[in-house]
Design a binder for these strands. Structure first.
Lengths: 181, 181
DNA sequence: AGTCCCATGTAATCCGTTACATGATTTA
DNA sequence: TAAATCATGTAACGGATTACATGGGACT
């Protein structure tokens, strides 16, 4: 295994919610789950074939009231079991969080180099934008408390992402402030 | 490119500090930089060969007062330029942070499932351990303020890692507390 | 008529992990 | 003398990105 392949679980999870086409799944990675995971469509289509082969899902091709032929995938009982087992399984250990910006800083010794401040500022901008975006998502998805109850996991991770970006931004701001002195 | 390969920059950065063997580099990934990046020795050795081929580093094999033959690598001016350019280059956008635990939560709808609390508690334990470990690293490396000045980038990212783990732990604690009600 | 989006795939390439492999030296 | 560590590699495999490829429908 190169890296642990989690895509099968994601696809099962999304297909369990309702039957979907490969294209539907691709769209979800551009919006909803795209906040937390990224994948290319070429990977989706090949993984779907593998899931069919292992009988986790079944496919149905046809014209569903449309003019374009589509292939819908539905989860099987076997697929539901796989998904359920994964969802409540424990991780044994944390993996290293690879962040290119953090890596760069590791090699920067001189805190008086003027380029360091520019780097920090540029990174701060990226994280502030991300934070704004996440706050809007939260407002859009969970302004109604009923939504929180019905999608508690999703609410939790959005909350976490916002806290994380707040941490990142305040950390950078403090570092910049310290340099300014 | 499969994923953006940052290993050449890491190796250049480490070799710039002082000439090193492949084994020395491997060791650094078990301690120092291992907090922020992971890699297998097979990748190190093959990347070193590529860096020699592209004239970023030069190798010297021999018995340096030892009984074992070793190959030391030294950075060239070309390698220094590559490293310097990378260190002060800007990232255009943030990449998605892939976290299996976060992914699981995305698919957990029912906040009353007793297994959810177990999952959160188990994850909390992992992050508390990580936090303790990081605090010890900070104490060991930067209790002397001179060290902070001399390795400002390293200090910054250790500080960031601690804040991050604090965020992770407090987020989980709040979520658990909310469930307990 | 052209552009954009829908919809679905394959192929090439590179990255990253696991497994295989070897031999010497140090330490218990 | 056995185990751990030093020291350096190759090979196989699977994951992830990029590029290639096709064709239809909707909108301007």
């Amino acid at each position: 295994m190169a890296q642990r392949n989690l895509l099968p679980f994601i696809l099962l999870g999304l297909i369990e919610q309702s039957p979907k086409t490969g294209y539907d799944l691709k769209k979800e990675f551009e919006t909803e789950i795209g906040e937390f995971w990224s994948v290319k469509h070429s990977q989706i289509y090949s993984e779907l074939k593998r899931l069919v082969a292992s009988e986790q899902i079944v496919s149905e091709t046809g014209y569903f009231g449309n003019k374009i032929e589509k292939t819908y995938y539905k989860i099987t009982n076997k697929g539901k079991e796989t998904l359920e087992t994964w969802k409540y399984s424990y991780d044994k250990q944390l993996v290293v969080n690879k962040d290119e910006f953090v890596l760069k800083l590791y090699f920067i010794k001189d805190k008086n180099d003027p380029r360091l401040k520019d780097l920090l500022n540029e990174q701060l901008l990226l994280h502030k934008n991300k934070l704004n975006h996440l706050n809007e998502r939260m407002k859009k998805l969970f302004s109604d408390t009923k939504e929180i109850d019905d999608n508690y996991g999703h609410y939790l991770i959005l909350d976490h992402a916002i806290r994380r970006e707040n941490e990142y931004a305040s950390w950078l701001e403090e570092a910049i402030g310290f340099l300014a002195k």
